[in-house]
Design a binder for these strands. Sequence first.
RNA 1: GGCGCGCUAGCUCAAUGGUAGAGCAAGUGACUCUUAAUCACUAGGUUCGGGGUUCGAGCCCCCGGCGCGUCACCA
Length: 520
Amino acid sequence: MDDEREQLAGERRLIHDRLAKIEALRARGIDPYPRSFHRTHLAAEAIALLEALEALEALEAAGAAGAADATAGETGDHSRTEPVTVAGRIMARRGMGKASFIDLKDGSGRIQLFARQNMLGDDFELLELLDLGDIVGASGPVIRTRKGEPSIEVTSVTVLTKAIRPLPDKWAGLQDIEARTRQRYLDLISNEWAMRNARLRPAIVASIRKFMHARGFVEVETPVLVAVAAGASAKPFRTHHNSLNRDLYLRIATELPLKKLLVGGMEKVFEIGRLFRNEGVDHDHNPEFTTMESYEAYTDYKGVMEMVEQLVSTVAVDVTGSMTLAPSGEGGVEIDLTPPWPRLDLRETIIKETGIDFAVCNDVESLSQAMRERGIHVEQGLSWGRLLDKVISASVEPKLIQPAFLVDYPVEMSPLAKRKPGSDGIVERFEAFVLGSEMANAFSELNDPVDQRARFEEQEKLRTEFSDDETDRLDEDFLTAIEHGMPPAGGLGIGIDRLTMLIAREESIREVILFPQLRT
RNA sequence: GGCGCGCUAGCUCAAUGGUAGAGCAAGUGACUCUUAAUCACUAGGUUCGGGGUUCGAGCCCCCGGCGCGUCACCA
């Protein structure tokens, strides 16, 4: 085209060519970035319009022809809807000289544009200035081509946005995992499953809200910036407030403020929100992740257990239409979410899987010894509770493929849970597992302020003793609150990212978070 | 953070230590029912960056960058 172009190579030439087309459009008095556009139909609606017309005409033809030999397949070929206007991105183009086929993609799907010179007139030349990736509008009746493809017989084309960079490979899509996350928009454009996951997640969240609202829960919002990162054991992110001149933390749980609302008389509350934990990044963990926590007065962990199995199975039916999740990949298993899920006593299950009885190995010494004997890596300086946690995650959790509840945890691992009557050292707590992954954590909430203070102080002691900066921190405001009386209640935390992974049958959290943290 | 693997054209991928290739996308031309359209031709590369070994490095070695897997920690 010109000398300047000859000097350019690769991507820069591709961009140069498209910029030149923008100039050519402007020279014709066409704005390549117009303000707005009125579309009458989505791609899927345009196709549905044609199908409805075909069905109607087939009926009429059958009625009119009576006993005449109805060439049913042929009647549809002549159906032609009223003119429609669609808009979307050009995904593919097949030029045929004085005719051209363009695949247009919008939020509802794809539709083919059938452009012919005799229908488009002078506008046909405009097609020369269009590229894959451009966003255009097109008008015309919906017809079916000879090969049976629903298509818009284009009578006018409008440039809506000219793209100056090319799309990823139209067939292979975008494969590079780094590019797929850094440039998620390209992933969404070119990989269908990426868009499927991107839509699945909000559908799940909406379904959870519907479920909770139907049960009378009120959705609330509590602070992300907190003075004390309490309510769970995890390392927090620290930040600083300038004019207050003090350090603040990003919350690691929503538990304590929600329970303050319980004290205040909000008897059924939940929050769907982002939590932040300053820990590793892998296929299962993102430093910011989303949970739904709920608190319901006058129930206990058994009530919560029933709610969890109802919630998860209801959401699955809501968004997939089925209570069973088909196997993912080869050798995968089908997951059946149908309630009720088995309740497995934690102590018995650990004994069954490892032979370790935590009621016997009830100090750091004997538990470490038992772990070493069974080849479980023992890290020095861990508290008894954290050691047992390692036993569970190493030997028990991987076995829990189909949904199951592990029930009744040692008090040492659960500073916010209420003691189980008649069982020394055991609290009313459960965790839900599917595919070896923790989905939910719940308990009968501890509302004895004296016991709660003692538990916190025990945690603080552990923290000093084991210099464990992950154990729970004492939140004096929270203690004051429950000293005013918190009703008996069942509380729940459920991981939205994990739940989405489960329902999407994805093995990486990256696939269900639009912009995940990449590993440094 | 440790260990392992990867990074080649806009995208997807090739290339015994011996002239860096293909398909798609792009450009030119042909084509009025194609759909991974087809056909002909053309152009497109600091092989992630830096250093080293070698007559010769995309490939071997060292340092760095960015990812992924795995272990540890966690949900």
